[in-house]
Each structure stands twice: as C-alpha cells, then as structure tokens.
Write a protein that binds this DNA or RNA. Structure first.
Lengths: 291, 291
DNA sequence: CTAAACATATCGTTTTTCCAGATACTATCT
DNA sequence: AGATAGTATCTGGAAAAACGATATGTTTAG
C-alpha cells in the first residue's frame, strides 16, 4: 500500500528534477526521498526513473503514473481544504470579484434570491481581470470569483461552469465594414481589430487574434470607446455594447460564417476551503439557474 | 497528514455501521480502527462520529468529508489498478461485449481502423445486457464493454461517453395507433407498451414506463417480434427496426411531443487495469470518432 | 586529466509510529 | 439484571520512518 508521502516525493522529484532538490523542498533528508521512491517502485513493481545520468529521468511507466499521482495529491489537498473549512465561521460579508466582461445586472439578480434566506448578508462587488481575480481569491481579498473560463486554474480553487454568454462583432456606423455583409473571416483581416489583453499580456483562450493589425486594451469599455470612434472592429459581450447600439453609435456586424459563434463559458470560482459552506452552495445554485 | 488507512477506516466504518465491523472487514484489530478514526478526527480538528448510542453515527462534518474520502480512496484504487496494468502483456485477442441494442455494424467499422496498426489482433464480440456486461468485465471474460449509460458503474471501471443514438416508437401496421398522429403522450397510455427489462428486473434509466399495460422482454429482438405481431407499441433503436420498416411489417410512429426525443448515451467501459494501454486508447478513439 | 560540485544508494542508529491483545467501561436487548 | 456487542485506553513488542554519515557515480570547469 503506497502512501501519500511516497507520491509527494515522486511528484516533487519530477517537478524539481532531482531527489535532493525534492528533499530540500519537502524539508526532509535526501535519503528519505530516495527511500520513498524506491519503495514506491517496489509497490508498483516497476522503475519510475532512469538513473543513468546525474539527474533521474522518468521512465515510460513513470510518465503513465505521474498524472495519476498528481490527481491523487490534488484530491488530498482538496480533502485538507474541506477539513480546514469545516470550522470557518459563516461569513456575514461576501466579496464577489467579477470579470469586467460579465454582466453585473444578471449577477445582481441572483443575489435577491439569497437575501430572503440570509437577510444579514452584506455584499461587495469588485471588477477585475480574470488573472487578478484568481489572485484575489488566493489572498482572500475576494471569496467568490466569476470569470470567463481560463485554462489553468490553481488546484486549490474549485470551479463550476455557470453557462455561456454570446459575443458579437461591433463596429462604428461610419466604418467601411459597416455597409457590407461579412462573407468570410478574410474581410476582417483587412481592418484593425480591437482586442482584450490583461495587464500580464496573457490573452484569454477565446480571444482570437484575427487581423494582423491589432490594438489592445485590458478593459472592455475602452475597447467599446475605441470602436465607437471608428478605430476598428471588436468582439464584445452583447450586454457591453447594448446601450451604444441603441443610441446608434455602434452597429452589430452581421456575419455569415457562423461556425465561429463566439460563445464564452463563465465559471464561478471558490477556494476549496469555502466550497462546502451552505451559503456558497446556495449562491452557486442561484447563479447557475440564471444563466 | 492523514493517511489512506485512516480514510479507509473512516469509510468502512460508515459502510459497515461500527468500528468493530469495520475492523473485521479490514482484517485488523478493533483498537486499530478506533485509533485511526480518533487520529483522523484530530487531524481534521472535528469529531466525525457521534458516540452517544451503541453505534457511531456521522456528524454533520463527517457527512461533509465522507464524499471527499470516498473520492480519495477511489483515486487510490485507480492508481493501484494503473500500476497493476503497467506490466500486463499487450493482448492479442480482445473480447468486446456489446449491449444488444447497440449497432454492431457501426462498431465493426471502428475496428477496421485498428487493423492497420495492429495486424495480429484477433477480436471476439459478445452480445449481452448491460448488467451482464459489467459482470463480464469484472471477471475478465470481456475486456471492453459498450453499453447504454447506466447510473451505477463500479468504481474500478473507467468509462467514457461515445455519443448517443436515437430511439423511435415502432408499431405494427395493423395496430389502431398506426393510423393517427400521436398528439401527446396520453395516446400511448391507452395501448400496451413493450419494454426492455434485464433478467435482474432492473429497468434501465432511460426505459420509461408510460403505459399501465406493459409486457417485458430482456431482448430487443423479442420486442421487435412482438411489435410486428401487433401486441403493442415499442421504443427501439432505429437500427433494430430498420429492416422490418423497409419490409413494411412495422411503421415508425410519428410523434408530435418532441420534448422526449428519446436519445440514449452510449459508454465504453474498461477495467482501469487496461485503460492506459495504447491499443485500448486507440480503440476508444476510433469508437468516439464514429459516433 | 583532475578536482570540485552535485547526485544517489546504502548502512547503522535513534525515534516514532503501528498493531494486537487485554481490560474497563457503555449502550442495548431480553 | 445479565448477556451481548460495542468503544476507549493502556501496554509491550514489532515495524517502519527519519536522519546523518559514507561510499560511489556523473557532470562541469579549470
């Protein structure tokens, strides 16, 4: 029966590159890590590392078992976090961090459902980029985050999908593209694109670069303003553009290549410590019912 | 740091109802289980059981942590099975067990892709009910199973969804229902339904009882025959009814209440021991591409 | 080519943990 | 009240974990 410590030694060794480094990181003696790996190899009845060179390298079997080990350790961490959360006091003020592209109005509706059950609850809303939100959850500046699905979410955060919202192409009325129906994506390449990019220069997975000529901003409303002033075309959540379309300063570009029906998934994020608290389960349920 | 043994003691206690019974099942002394639970409670900083009565009962905290523990143990089992599978020889004959309602023709097509990569592979196909298939996977009579998604699959089996197939209503031409368009489900209630039920009397989750008058069979082709002879209406996979519809002995009943667009998901099942073998990964990929 | 720097495996010793059995105590049923 | 089944605690002995020291191997740089 292999133990959690063995798996930890295994995974840390892969991460750090050597038994010694793993031992340093885990705060144990080098011989301990060495023994753990050897025992794990005995249990699995197969070598996990190739020990020819100076640094151990994974064998094929090791590569197969690595993801399993990581999954097991993550589950372990999850258990620890749940146990930690058991005696957390029920919060009476909750901070929700929202990605800037997410419609606050819709979210706010979900809250009214909560009010009847938790009358003393006080709420705070923060707007930020997805990466900043993950940071806020880490250092507990916020307790719940709502973001567009990003690929790498830290393992101590639980997430669930709430649904999807639609993105459309918007453009100023005066823009040359506004008078034609866009038959294919190549039309778009001929004009400047306005694109979202967070402060850390990491573009979101669903923000495609289409045109070779791109201006960036880290904020949807800046993009909106640039589009209004005719600096280019832009992919925006419909609720962001709604008012300006009504005013007539912006128009939605009809597209014929519908295979890119730009939809973005929205996730709700929560530290595992807080995931099982009833307030948050209720909050997530209301959110899911809305979208 | 809590150990796998502690969690095993915890979960087994919940399953068996007492520390003593858990100890018997795990083949340990009673004091060992008792200590494991106590240590786990110390680690989690909360009591997991109420010890007033004769038998321990879960506290609220225990109820929260139970599913986490089960998940961790299942992941542990999964790891063990993967490790076991590492030195399994690459099989040169593969037995695939199919649910009777699943189109063999389609499945067979997937195999031709494999033949080029594994020319020496010999295949065997068995037809059985979903429950029997799970049994065959357990005692290794079959190595891969393809069934309609059932709710409870044993934890040592890996499963993935391949897709869905459509079910339609079929009926003999001479049957009174055949001359009318079915406006709502109540029409169906007035006539006998022919329904699939496995030998163990457990109906599948997607086999709805609609009519109060039902005849059962454990085999789609018996149902088909009964329907042909006019004994009632029947929900069948379209490929089962196809030939008889062409011959004119059976007709597809048009329905207007489309909200029950009877679709059944199809899963491929595999013992975790074999999941990571390349042949099976390839097999599953081909299957998924077909549906 | 050699020495320095860094890694790993193994050994002996100490410390800790684990396990089983004995025992005392408690709840439940008859 | 007694029989039965269950739990917590204590014990000694066995097992295992951790550590530090050491021998040995690999890589890099002079």
């Amino acid at each position: 029966m292999f133990s959690v410590e063995q798996l930890q030694a295994f995974v840390t060794t892969v991460e750090t590159g050597s038994f010694s480094a793993a031992a340093r990181q885990l705060g144990k003696a080098q011989s301990v890590v060495s023994q753990h790996i050897i025992n794990l190899e005995i249990d699995c009845n197969t070598p996990l590392f190739e020990r020819t060179g100076r640094y151990p390298t994974l064998t094929a079997e090791g590569k197969t078992l690595l993801p399993q080990s990581i999954a097991l350790l993550q589950q372990h961490q999850r258990f620890t976090n749940s146990a930690l959360g058991l005696h957390q006091p029920i919060p009476d003020d909750i901070t929700i961090a929202l990605d800037e592209g997410i419609p606050l109005k819709t979210i706010a509706k979900a809250i009214t459902n909560l009010e009847t059950k938790y009358p003393n609850l006080s709420l705070e809303f923060l707007s930020a980029s997805s990466l900043d939100i993950i940071d806020m959850l880490k250092n507990e500046r916020a307790i719940t985050g709502i973001i567009f699905s990003e690929l790498d979410i830290p393992s101590y955060l639980d997430y669930e999908c709430l649904g999807a919202i639609k993105f459309d192409l918007y453009i100023a009325k005066s823009h040359p593209l506004a008078n034609q129906v866009c038959k294919n994506i190549d039309n778009l390449r001929l004009h400047r694109q306005l694109l979202l990019r967070s402060r850390t220069t990491q573009t979101s997975s669903f923000q495609f670069k289409i045109s070779p000529d791109i201006w960036y901003s880290d904020n949807y409303f800046v993009l909106l303003e640039l589009a209004i002033q005719g600096y280019g075309w832009c992919l925006l959540p419909s609720h962001v553009a709604f008012d300006e379309v009504n005013k007539g300063s912006l128009i939605k570009l009809p597209i014929e290549f519908k295979e890119m029906g730009w939809m973005a998934n929205i996730d709700v994020l929560q530290h595992q410590k807080h995931s099982s608290l009833e307030v948050f389960r209720d909050l997530r349920t209301s959110l899911r019912n809305l979208l």
